[in-house]
Design a protein around this nucleic acid. Sequence first.
DNA 1: TAGATTGTTAATCGATTAACAATC
DNA 2: TAGATTGTTAATCGATTAACAATC
Lengths: 207, 207
Amino acid sequence: MTPLEVPAPTIARLALYLRCLRACRREGVRTISSAGIGARTGISSGQIRKDLSYFGEFGRPGIGYAVDALLEHLSAIMGLNRPHTVVLVGAGNLGRALLGYPGFEESGFRIAAVFDNDPAKIGRSTVGRKILDMATLAEANKEIGAEFGMIATPASAAQEVADALVEAGVRGILNFAPAHLTVPETVTARNVDLTREIEVLCYFVGP
Amino acid sequence: MTPLEVPAPTIARLALYLRCLRACRREGVRTISSAGIGARTGISSGQIRKDLSYFGEFGRPGIGYAVDALLEHLSAIMGLNRPHTVVLVGAGNLGRALLGYPGFEESGFRIAAVFDNDPAKIGRSTVGRKILDMATLAEANKEIGAEFGMIATPASAAQEVADALVEAGVRGILNFAPAHLTVPETVTARNVDLTREIEVLCYFVGP
DNA sequence: TAGATTGTTAATCGATTAACAATC
DNA sequence: TAGATTGTTAATCGATTAACAATC
């Protein structure tokens, strides 16, 4: 069900197909071909069929894919057929934006609590959620039971926060701080680095 | 100077090396080996040397790399040895976070103006910047001369905004909306999709 | 000098693409 | 049936790794 030999780029594209299929469902499209998904995502139809083939046979030759069914299959493969709970660390600008970002909830990720270590912030509320003391993270997560942690702190604090999240029992970390994290093998960390993205864009734009 | 045969993953790593070298400089480290960069970034020393070799010879056998000099070289390669101007479209939650994010300025990207099409927002200020009418984008950018545009709108508006940015003369677009953009070949678009990132993380965390 | 480390080559590994028989 | 489209195979392409002579 989770074959190890699936290429990582395939998984990243699966999330794209999901997005496309959700849009199809909203639009009332019932059936779509790999070429149709390709037109909407910019990925070649062959690549799409190859990606799906790692997980099974979901389509019908001559017809295409049933949108609802493929959506169900891909959701299950990605682990998105059930809700997930997230704790957020860092109640600054970026943290507040993540709290207010509707996309997470729509994909089934609920940010259950926000933590910070700034005494000026602890106890206050932001985007409708109370800011809790970072020092209480492990204790609080016994109650919350979050699987995921998001780091929206300065880079200098990121590793320390990651350690605390691991200690608190999260199994996945989405790190928005521009820092390389070291985590145990039992935990998966993934980085989103805004500065890096615009720098890479700058290279490709050229002089 | 900008060989076309450089792999895209190499460019993404170059941004990582830059981040590492900036940290070294802050710490007063004058010289670093590829193994040293590897320890700080999680990338193998061989990969690092290979990546650098696409652009020249920057190190000395037995010694390593001069931090300042390599920083200069990589900055020039990435086009980061001069300031860049950005216009932001979308003054919602995410847009405000991008405005307040210090990392862009530190890398030389200045967000010169914010645009929105919501009459309730136009004319007001956010994070110290006045929100301008989206309809005036092309006209305003004759003055501003921004090379880059950032899209922080709902997905439904993203393509339309991208078209307007292209019309206004930007050459690179960083798109935070979960939508696939179609842009002319002369323009480079890059996506940052927060929902996608946590979905991919979810897959790798497993059940 | 001896030890460290680079730049580069060749070998390996992995991902994408092209093409088509099978199927609806 | 004829046309469309899948799933899969083999071929191609590209990126990473291992290894080492050259060099400081």
